[in-house]
Amino acid sequence: MKTISTLALTMALALGAHWSAAADLRPTSQNGVTYLSGGVGEEERQAMLDARGDYKLLLTFSTKGSGEMLADVAVTIRDHAGKEVASLVSPGPMCYLDLAPGSYRILASAHGKEISRTAVVKPRGRRELYFYWDPV
C-alpha cells in the first residue's frame, strides 16, 4: 500500500522531479464500465481533475487526520442485485467510473480494512465518495 505525502510531493517538485505519468493516464473498460484511475504527482492529479466531467462516480482515497492520499486501493463495484460490474486496483488516490444510472455498492480495501459505501448514480450530474482509513 503506497501513501503519497503532500510534503514529499512538494519536495520532489522543488527538486525538479517531473512526472510523465499524466501522459500514460488512459481510460480502461471492464464489463462495459469505463474508468480512469490515478492522481499520483501534480500533472496526473491535474489530468484527473480535468477529466471529472466525463465520469458519473468519483472516488477519492486518503488517510484520516493527515489527509495523506492512498494508492493501490482494491475497489469492487456491485449493482443493486449484487452483481459485480467492475473490480480493479486503483494505482492512484482518485478513481473515476462511468456507470449507468442505478444503485451501487462500492467496496474499497486498503491496509487490510474494507470500507463499504452505497451510491445512486443519476442520469445527470456526478456522485462523489470519499474513503478514509485510519493511519497505519
Rank of each mutant, 00 (worst) to 15 (best):
A110M: 03
A71N: 02
G92S: 09
V75H: 08
V120W: 06
A51Q: 06
L129I: 05
S109A: 15
G53W: 03
L59T: 00
Y35Q: 03
S37V: 05
V120T: 11
V85T: 15
L97E: 03
H111R: 15
S103M: 12
A14Y: 00
D134Q: 14
M1Q: 11
A100Y: 03
V85G: 12
G82E: 05
Q46I: 06
G38N: 03
T76S: 14
G67D: 00
P123W: 10
Q30K: 08
L99Y: 10
Y130I: 08
L36C: 06
V136D: 13
S37C: 10
K64F: 02
L57D: 01
V89W: 07
I4F: 15
S103E: 14
V33Q: 02
S20M: 07
P135T: 09
G92L: 04
D98Q: 13
R105L: 05
A74C: 07
T63H: 07
D54M: 07
G16C: 09
R124P: 00
S116R: 14
G102F: 11
G16I: 08
Y35G: 01
S87L: 13
S66Y: 02
P101V: 04
L99T: 04
V33E: 01
R105S: 14
A110L: 11
S62E: 04
C95Y: 02
V33K: 05
R127P: 00
T118M: 11
Y104W: 08
L70G: 03
T3E: 11
K2R: 14
K83M: 13
P91W: 10
P91M: 12
T28F: 07
D24L: 15
V85N: 12
L13S: 14
R52I: 01
E42V: 06
E43V: 00
A108Y: 05
A8H: 08
M48K: 05
N31F: 08
K83V: 11
G65N: 05
G41D: 03
S90L: 06
L7Q: 12
D50A: 15
S90T: 03
W19K: 09
W19Q: 12
R52V: 06
T10L: 15
Y96L: 07
D98M: 09
K2E: 05
A12W: 06
V73E: 04
A47C: 02
P93I: 02
L49S: 00
G41V: 00
L97C: 10
A47Y: 06
I77G: 08
A14G: 11
Y104I: 05
G67P: 03
Y104Q: 05
R127A: 08
N31E: 10
L107V: 07
G65H: 00
A110D: 01
S20N: 13
D24Y: 12
V75N: 04
L57Q: 04
K56A: 15
A108D: 03
Y35R: 09
H111E: 09
A71V: 04
V121H: 07
H80W: 09
T28S: 08
P101M: 13
L107T: 08
S66A: 04
A23T: 10
A74T: 00
